[in-house]
Structures are given as C-alpha cells and as structure tokens.
Amino acid sequence: LLSPLRFGVLLALLLVLTWRRLPRGLRYLASLPLIGCVLSSLPVVANLLVGIAESRFPSAQTCAVPLPQTIVVLGGGISRQPVDAADVDSLGETSLRRVIGAADLYRAHEPARLVISGGTSQYGVAESSLMAALAQRLGVPAATITVETESHSTWQNARFVAALEPLIDRRIWLVTSALHMPRSIYAFEQAGFEVCAWPTDSRLGHANSIGYYLPSIGALDKSDAVIHEWLGEAAYRMGWLRSVSRDPWSGGDER
C-alpha cells in the first residue's frame, strides 16, 4: 500500500464502487490522493522528488583528511536464483552498480579494506558473497575483502558490520545508491560510525523530450522508491523496525 501505483488503483476501484453514495464534499476530498498518484506518475515530479532525496547528504569532497581506508558497500538485491556463490550475473542492477562504485573507490584508495554487507537471500546464497566474487573480478584482492552475511535490512547492515571481528575502523566510506544514502548514513551513525558518503546509482533524470511531462511507469517507480526511503528513514528515527528481522522498507533493489 506504500506504492503510489497500488494505492492509486485500489483507491480508484473504491471510488468507482462507492461514488454515488459519497457526499459531494467527500468526493472532492477522496480525489486528492488520486491527483497525487497522477502527479507522481509524471517524470518532472518524480525527478523533483528524487533530486530532493538524493541531495540530503554531504558530498565526498567534504570528507575530512585523512580519508578513510575502510569501504563498506551495501547489498542491493539479486535478480534471479544464483547457480552458486560465484554466479555474479544473478546480481540485481543496483548491486552491480554498487560493487562497481566500490571497486572504483578501492582503486583510488588502495590499499584499503572492502566490507560487503548483505545477508542470505531466499535462494540460499548471500548477496554479499556474490558481490565479493564480482569485486574480485574487478581487481579487488580477495585478502582485502570481508563479507557480512546475516543482515536483511539497512539497520542490520550497520549493526552487524559494527560487530564484525576483527573490528573495522569506525571511520568509513559508505557505498550505496544515492537515493538510499540518507537512511544508510543515519543507520551507520547510530551504530557508531563516522561516514563519508560515496553514492552510486543515481536515479535523477532531466528533461530531454516531451515525454518528461507525460505519465510513465518509470516515474511511478521513482516516486515509489522515494516514498519508501522517506518512510523507512522516518521509521528508524522514531525507533520502529530496528529489531525486526526484515522490515517492509528492505525489499527489492532499495534495501
């Protein structure tokens, strides 16, 4: 129900079934969420929301010297059942982009320690293991990689990485999707880390045709992702969902 598309469809069906029974004032009021759903399907609106969400953290250029020598990258999901822990083609697009960003950062700060956080999926293979295999293919030495394989939410990413043995530095580069970064920074700061942000996988788009002002499924997906991140961060800040094994804002490609 947090999805604009699902909410809009359900509300439209409800209005169709009850329209004649509703008082006129209530009809107008009930139409407001529908208008919001229509607006969220417009790329111009969706990208405005994404721009606001992706700008809510300090840039990497503001990270104080000396720069961190530990890189923590968060899992972003897998797209199909992997054959084994080396089947990197099963990684979702978000995970792929995060690993590529982490590998680029590693090469810029070599030697560094790369910590990959992501628990065992429904297919029985930890996404962090798959991401580690890809990082090695991209030139990161296996000896510098540590995997955390138990977490299933952003809050758990932070807590379980903090509990790794041997302990990792408390000053880290944090690699995740730009849209996911504000919630991730909050979770890791609450776990005792000082974070330098290294965002990947930006979803911000710009006007390039008339289609930018017409409804699209892609725009709904972006609006949905922003709403998920804002609600997930709000839940963390209010103390909700911190102790559950899987929270409703940890599915799909935006953990």
Rank of each mutant, 00 (worst) to 15 (best):
A207Y: 06
R107T: 15
L204I: 13
R56C: 12
L204T: 09
T120E: 14
L15R: 03
G218I: 05
C63E: 10
G92S: 13
T62H: 07
A103P: 08
A85K: 12
I185Y: 05
V50P: 04
L22A: 08
P111M: 09
V147H: 08
V99K: 07
V125F: 03
A135I: 03
R27I: 03
A142S: 11
D89P: 05
F57M: 13
E189C: 07
G75P: 12
G8L: 01
L26Y: 09
S223R: 00
L2W: 10
V72M: 00
N47Q: 11
A12H: 09
P248E: 02
P82L: 01
H180S: 15
H228M: 14
P215S: 05
G8K: 01
I145Q: 00
E148D: 05
L174H: 03
V16F: 10
V195D: 01
V65H: 10
D104A: 15
Y212M: 08
D221P: 02
A158Y: 02
I217N: 14
S202R: 13
F7A: 12
A219F: 04
P199E: 07
V65F: 15
G8W: 03
R56Q: 13
I52S: 12
V125S: 06
L13H: 05
V161M: 05
M181V: 12
I172N: 02
V16D: 13
L138W: 04
L96P: 07
R246P: 01
L220F: 04
G92E: 13
I78T: 15
G211R: 11
D87E: 06
H206V: 14
R242L: 11
A30E: 11
F7G: 02
L130Y: 15
H206C: 10
I172G: 01
P182H: 14
L5E: 04
G139W: 09
F188R: 01
K222H: 10
R24F: 11
V125C: 06
L26T: 11
N47L: 04
D221V: 09
R203H: 10
S95C: 09
G232A: 13
S153H: 01
I168F: 02
S40E: 02
E189T: 08
V140K: 03
D253N: 14
P43R: 05
L74A: 04
P33F: 01
F7N: 05
R159M: 14
S79M: 12
L204H: 09
P66V: 08
R246T: 06
Q136M: 14
V38Q: 04
L32K: 13
A112I: 00
S243H: 14
L164K: 06
A178S: 15
L17H: 10
G119L: 10
L42E: 07
L2C: 08
V115M: 02
R21S: 10
P33E: 01
G8F: 05
R98H: 06
S40Y: 00
Q81E: 15
S250G: 08
R20M: 13
G119N: 08
R80W: 03
L48T: 12
P111Y: 10
R159W: 03
E229P: 12
R27M: 07
R137T: 06
S59M: 11
G211T: 07
P82Y: 02
I227L: 15
G192V: 01
M181A: 15
E54M: 07
F193T: 02
I217F: 08
V161P: 00
L204M: 12
L1G: 12
T70W: 01
R242S: 04
V73C: 06
S153F: 00
Q122W: 07
Y212A: 05
L91K: 14
L49I: 04
T149K: 06
A197C: 15
